[in-house]
Computed example of a mutant assay.
Amino acid sequence: MPRTRPPYLQKFREQIVELARNGCSPKELAEEFEPTETIIRNWLKQGDQDDGIRSDGPTTEEKEEIRQLRKKLRKLRQERPI
């Protein structure tokens, strides 16, 4: 069975993104810290979307709103047959 780990804290993510924006490569950060290079690149991409630098996907706030709406829809669909 695969091992899972708890999600990284938001403050930790922000620190890694800040280090990457200040010149450290994702590969260097991945070697020094636990997250993989791919995870760090995803955090950078999401940070750019949140800051308005990129517009090719939803921001973190929009993702949270979508998640909440889907949860509410699931609940309503379950209640409907009752």
Rank of each mutant, 00 (worst) to 15 (best):
K27Y: 09
Q46F: 03
R21P: 00
Q15L: 13
S25T: 15
Q15S: 12
Y8H: 07
Q15F: 07
P7K: 04
E79M: 14
N22T: 10
R13I: 03
L19C: 03
E32C: 09
I82F: 15
S25M: 12
R80K: 14
G57W: 00
Q10F: 12
Q49C: 03
A20P: 02
A20H: 05
K71N: 11
E28I: 02
W43A: 00
I40M: 04
K45R: 14
Q15I: 08
R3K: 06
P7M: 03
E65T: 07
E28Y: 07
G23F: 06
L76G: 07
R21N: 12
E18N: 12
Q49E: 07
A20W: 02
V17L: 04
R54L: 10
L19K: 11
K72N: 10
F33D: 04
N22W: 05
P6L: 00
F12R: 13
L29Y: 00
R54Y: 11
K75E: 15
A20E: 02
C24P: 00
E18T: 11
K71S: 13
T59G: 05
K72Y: 07
E79Y: 08
D50F: 10
R54E: 07
R70M: 15
Y8K: 04
T60H: 02
P35M: 08
G23N: 05
L76Y: 13
N22Y: 02
Y8W: 13
F33K: 11
Q78D: 12
I40E: 00
I16A: 01
E31V: 06
T36Y: 04
R3D: 09
N42S: 08
P26N: 07
A20T: 04
P58A: 07
Q46N: 04
E61H: 04
G23D: 09
L69E: 15
T59Q: 02
I16E: 03
R5I: 05
R13S: 01
Q10R: 14
F33R: 05
N22L: 08
K45I: 08
